[in-house]
Design a protein around this nucleic acid. Structure first.
Length: 610
RNA sequence: CGGGGCGUGGCGCAGCUUGGUAGCGCGGGUGCUUUGGGAGCACUAGGUCGCAGGUUCGAAUCCUGUCGCCCCGACCA
């Protein structure tokens, strides 16, 4: 391929719209253009990269025995209503693009395909004899992200590989899940990425176990907590740790004593004024949970004063406590004084709330359920004696005990956010370290969540119908491409790993005016192509410097410079990533590159942990 | 959606405070010179200053509204 025919437009300045290196480089290198917020045109060079990633994904998925398929992006609302996700995905902060057709039918553009695939499974899978089976597709997904960001990192239209597996029992699901785990490690490694596998929250997809694959990079949106030996790694929203022990509170009396605390509405203020340690206190957070079905519910969370709430863990705990009858949890936000007022309730002593806040405070509420949902983090529940709000203005209790506070006991759960520096659960001798990551893959054991609601059953060996066991497995193909740039670039531009580079070699003719150089450049290009390599020939009548700059920017792994030595058939070979150069004859260069590149194509050189 | 910022030739920006009929660098075209790390000179094309109202003799500039984009939070491959 000739660069002059490539429609290559590179930019000298960083585009104003880009913030992180990979985004800037993909725009500057002529790989893509923004069409709308979170919507990008993949230009020919990028499409080659995406195709190569897809090819690797296909090989590895095929090797697991999965079958490639292609499901519709346009999906009927009725299907999503059956799974109970239509509301959650379209109302409020839902991310599903949806529309109404000329027959007034509601449709959505697929953000994911559990519904479609499960309905198909219900139709096609009838007997345990057909199981297990896995299907996958590489397809454009649509998600109306609340905030699209960083180019391909969080687009509203993006390319994803999603796979779904179906099983007769949970043990078989685990086998495929493990196989997918291994396939994922090979895929990322072959793409030249350094990744970490971490324990993850299952989020809106649901299910039990799930694991994310993170490309380690400072620009990553996720915080990873891991042990130094790499045996434990988790997304912070999921991570667990050993909290520091609480400082015991010494009390003279067995009874709690009231303390006048004017204006001391925060743990810091309270502790500063009276010399308490935050770990001796219990703080109370009030939130309002809105679900797809039923009235809003007040949620009261008790946390040890020195701990931070983990919103993901809380949302999971609230969903679990409310049960399926409430439908999907749509919103869980702190309650404001205005909301309390609008409910027609008297003002609450916010800032002095205690875990024993009674349901009587909700009497007469206009639209809220009349009972409080009480949750407590284990660190708070374990405190024997503590300081907490007295549910009266400017008053706290010193020496409070759960037994003496009375009222309904809270549900105890892990609600705290693990922090870097805390001790690992598995090995208290190690401390959690933090790093940033870009999530490029996520695998889930869905269990029977979707098969039950969509009635996807099969007949087992005993002749009885039961719901299918399911797993699902995603890779952000377009995100992976940008993550690769984020991990492989320098001040001059991109340094693509050979396995996913748009071209493997670029032959730069230093002087397009020199017929000898042109002739040798053409010949080398042809010979390299005949050797099975993917070759660019920079035949533009630009100065050599321009071509070198562009070659560095677009990041072709190998550069062959046809210049001064052309008359004696001598060329220069430059490796992009390392910058190492050597002069050699035109014949040797073909042999050498064929060896290097055919070996590197398979990838499997990148390191991987956990 | 809340908070912050930006919309001026293809790209990056200045001009706006203090209204007076639009400029710089890069890029494009032509010519000459140059030719191994984003060349020099000359000529040239290209902009209803996001859009819509308003104020004014006069608006890129002031006011109102609106649309779009980016950044910080909730979401996720």
């Amino acid at each position: 391929m000739r660069v002059s025919r490539l429609m290559l437009v590179t930019l000298r300045d960083d585009p104003a719209e880009a913030e992180i290196p990979s985004h800037k480089l993909l725009l500057r290198g002529g790989y893509m253009r923004r069409v709308a917020s979170g919507v990008y045109a993949y230009l020919p060079l990028l499409w080659r990269v995406l195709s190569k990633i897809s090819a690797i994904v296909r090989q590895e998925m095929d090797a697991t025995g999965a079958l490639e398929t292609l499901l519709p992006a346009l999906q009927p609302a009725s299907l999503w209503e059956r799974s109970g996700r239509w509301q959650g995905y379209t109302a409020g902060e839902g991310i599903m693009f949806h529309l109404v057709d000329r027959q007034e039918r509601s449709l959505g553009l697929g953000p994911t395909h559990e519904e479609v695939i499960t309905a198909l499974a219900a139709d096609l899978l009838r007997s345990y004899r057909q199981l297990p089976v896995s299907l996958y597709q590489i397809q454009t997904k649509f998600r109306d992200e609340i905030r699209p960001r960083f180019g391909l990192m969080r687009g509203r239209e993006f390319i994803m590989k999603d796979a779904y597996s179906f099983h007769a029992d949970e043990a078989d699901l685990r086998l495929t899940y493990e196989r997918m785990d291994q396939a994922y490690r090979r895929i990322f490694s072959r793409c030249g990425l350094r990744t970490v596998a971490v324990e993850a929250d299952s989020g809106a997809i649901g299910g039990s176990a799930s694991q994310e694959f993170m490309v380690t990079a400072d620009a990553g949106e996720d915080l990873i907590l891991s042990s130094a030996d790499g045996r434990y790694a988790a997304n912070q929203e999921r991570a667990c740790s050993l909290p520091e022990p609480a400082v015991p509170l010494v009390c003279a009396t067995a009874e709690a004593v009231e303390l006048h605390t004017p204006g001391q509405h925060s743990i810091e203020a309270l502790c500063a004024a009276h010399g308490f340690e935050p770990s001796q206190t219990v703080k109370v957070l009030l939130l309002l949970a809105r679900c797809a079905l039923g009235q809003a519910r007040v949620v009261l969370v008790s946390l040890r004063g020195d701990q931070q709430l983990n919103p993901t863990k809380l949302a999971n705990a609230v969903s679990g406590a409310l049960g399926e009858s409430a439908g999907a949890l749509l919103e869980l936000e702190p309650i404001t004084p205005e909301q309390i007022h609008l409910e027609g309730l008297p003002a609450w002593p916010l800032g002095c709330l205690g875990p024993h806040l009674g349901d009587e405070w909700l009497a007469g509420a206009r639209s809220w359920q009349p009972t409080v949902l009480r949750l407590a983090d284990a660190t708070a529940a374990e405190l024997e004696v503590f300081v907490c709000g007295a549910n009266r203005p400017d008053t706290h209790l010193v020496g409070a005990r759960w037994s003496a506070l009375g009222g309904p006991r809270p549900i105890v759960a892990d609600l705290r956010s693990a922090q870097p520096g805390e001790r690992c659960l598995q090995d208290p001798a190690q401390r959690l370290e933090s790093s940033r990551g870009i999530e490029v893959g996520h695998i889930f054991q869905l269990g029977r969540k979707y098969s039950q609601v969509l009635e996807a059953t099969f007949t087992n060996e005993q002749g009885l119908d039961e719901p299918l066991w399911m797993g699902c497995y995603g890779i952000g193909v377009s995100r992976l491409a940008q993550a690769a740039v984020e991990q492989h670039h320098d001040q001059h531009g991109i340094c693509w790993p050979v396995a996913i580079a748009p071209f493997e070699v670029i032959v730069v003719v230093a002087s397009a005016q020199d017929p000898v150089q042109v002739a040798l450049g053409e010949r080398l290009h042809d010979e390299l192509e005949q050797a099975g390599l993917e070759v660019l020939l920079d035949d533009r009548s630009e100065r050599a410097g321009v071509k070198f700059k562009d070659a560095d920017l677009i990041g072709i792994p190998w550069r062959v410079v046809v210049g001064r030595g052309a008359a004696s058939a001598q060329v220069e070979l430059v490796e992009r990533a390392s910058g190492t150069k050597c002069d050699l004859g035109a014949k040797e260069v073909v042999t050498l590159l064929r060896e290097h590149i055919t070996a590197a194509r398979l990838g499997l050189t990148a390191t991987q942990s956990s």
